[in-house]
Design a protein around this nucleic acid. Structure first.
Lengths: 146, 146
DNA sequence: CTCCGAATGAGAATGATTATCATTATCAAA
DNA sequence: TTTGATAATGATAATCATTCTCATTCGGAG
């Protein structure tokens, strides 16, 4: 299920969607910037295509999500972050600086799913806490939980 | 970390917050209805206190979240669901009917956290897919991983 | 080159959540 | 008990991310 920018073409064409420059650019940006959010993607996209609209970013994200090419995570609070779908992994999300570490997932969800007659389509695993850098009582630039 | 309605009083008083009838009612409702959302909580709360406002619901939820008494999960798409904080567990979320099954978590995050010098304060684990009841030919959401 | 449906941009609309502000309730001291 | 300081609340406006609408543009089949 590992996707790559190149495989997106296949996924799009398989459902009769066009492979447009916008879509190629966006998937490329997501590939290079794991955990980026919609606004960040839009900003970067404007460097190469100044007229690209935010709506196109959201539309494309949703499409690629439906095609299982990218994955959305609601890490912090309000909004989503995106990344190319890859191997199972879990996120270590720092509540202070917001940094996200990817760690290979230790979960054997196949067994769990079988046990509950459940067909798994997505796994979202996060551990929220404080990363090494934020460990000492730093009252810096974020909402720290106590 | 395990919280109960009764322990909320302690948590509130520990930070100088009042134990009001609204707060007691809300924590009670969440306790009886795991995975309920803000509007659901508000609806139920109005049965006993017709004048309670939605703002109070959200304010209280946030407060109880900060006190680590309740936990918010962004299960489906748009909005959050709440539950009393308890033992580690993961959610099996049905993409079709929305049912949520709680399953004891098989993750040993202590080892992972130690390895990455990470202090874990929350774990959010979800597997999204189709529950047994929704298993037979559902068209839309079925892009299962195998 | 022409047509038609897909894709896009701009901005309005939506929905969940948060902030504001005037009013009310609560606790402590006199 | 009355007062005074302060926290909590209700109503509603504001915000923020995301989705929708629609007029326009683009791309590929003929």
């Amino acid at each position: 299920m590992t996707q790559s920018p190149a495989e997106m073409r296949v996924a799009l064409m398989a459902v009769g969607k066009r492979v447009t420059p916008d879509r190629e650019l966006l998937i490329d940006i997501i590939g290079r910037n794991p955990h980026i959010d919609a606004l960040g993607i839009h900003r970067l996209a404007q460097d190469s295509r100044p007229r690209i609209g935010l709506a196109t970013v959201y539309r494309t994200l949703r499409l690629l999500e439906e095609l299982a090419v990218v994955e959305a995570d609601r890490l912090g609070e309000g909004h989503s972050h995106y990344e190319i779908r890859g191997r199972d992994h879990l996120h270590l999300v720092c509540a202070n600086c917001g940094e996200v570490l990817d760690v290979p997932s230790p979960i054997d969800w196949k067994g769990i799913a079988r046990e509950h007659a459940f067909v798994v389509t997505q796994s979202r695993l996060e551990l929220v806490g404080l990363c090494a850098a934020c460990r000492p009582g730093v009252a810096d630039h974020s909402k720290s939980i106590t």
